[in-house]
Simulated scan of single mutants.
Amino acid sequence: MALILVTGAAGGLGYDTASALAGDGHDVVVHVRHRARLGDAGHDAGRWAGVVTGDLAHLDEIHGVAAQAAAFGRFDAVVHNAGVLHSPDTATVNTVAPYVLTALMERPGRLVYVSSSMHHGGSTDLGRLAAGTASYADSKLWVTTLALAVAARWAGTASHAVDPGWVPTRMGGPGAPDDLAAGHRTQVWLATGSGITPPTGGYWYHRRTQAPHPATRDEDFRARLLQTLAEHTGVPLASG
């Protein structure tokens, strides 16, 4: 069985992903912003291998999450699920936090980054990160690019991005048209499954690869993104 970290697991797709993995017998460590969120979501704390806490909107707390996670040793997989939609902290939670956690934590066997079809409307203007003007679409373009950049950089670690669909979670709203049950299955499969093709660097929707924004395949943009994130956070991403 695998040791897996799922961020943003207090509710929604993160909770569904963590629950499915635990139900399959894996050792799941869940990240929540505050431990009280476990009670809010009706979690059975006994089913988790551990809990790490921290507000991913703040750089110091992102570092704290990485330090807490290190106490569990090397993870077999990390699912970067945490995200926000309409917030001044959109880029920090959706892009900066996955980047910093990836850079600081011991390399897992598999990395899964939750993206969105909205990433197709994102901007390659990385000045928006420092300016604090990044949109949700921007943040998802950047985290998708991060996933594919890591896939190209780190041999031995499978790294994928996933569009879970527009599903009726708290973020998606009750009128979202996609299947809620299908919203987490690809993440579970990428974290634990076999026979995945391509074995790394895929952008997935319901276990099928899709064509991501062309910028995600652009080596120059990938390099600019990693450099921008390193300068913004003071945390470099190790080369292969």
Rank of each mutant, 00 (worst) to 15 (best):
P212N: 04
D125T: 00
A191T: 03
I196T: 11
G121W: 00
W204T: 04
L85I: 12
Y205Q: 13
E231C: 07
A70T: 13
G193N: 08
V79C: 08
A215Y: 05
G240D: 12
L226V: 07
W166D: 12
H232F: 12
A66M: 05
L3P: 06
G183Q: 04
T124A: 02
V29W: 06
T90D: 07
W166T: 11
Q210K: 15
V93A: 09
S117L: 15
A215R: 02
A22E: 11
S115Q: 01
T95G: 06
G127K: 04
G183E: 02
V167E: 12
L229I: 00
A36H: 11
P199V: 00
Y136P: 04
E106P: 10
A69H: 08
A238Q: 12
A152D: 15
P212W: 01
D40H: 13
D60V: 13
T7V: 10
G83Y: 04
Y15G: 12
L56R: 06
T197W: 15
V143L: 06
M105W: 07
D60E: 15
G11D: 15
G54M: 11
P174T: 02
T7D: 11
P168W: 10
A10N: 15
T133D: 10
G193K: 08
Q68R: 05
G127T: 09
A66L: 06
T144C: 05
T124W: 02
T200G: 09
T95Y: 01
G73F: 09
T209F: 09
G175I: 03
A57W: 08
L225R: 00
A9Y: 04
G165C: 07
T192A: 13
L56S: 07
L141M: 01
G42H: 02
T233P: 01
A161P: 08
R153F: 09
D76W: 01
H63N: 12
L3T: 14
T124G: 01
N94V: 02
R222L: 00
P212L: 00
G39I: 03
P108K: 06
E231I: 07
V29A: 08
N94E: 05
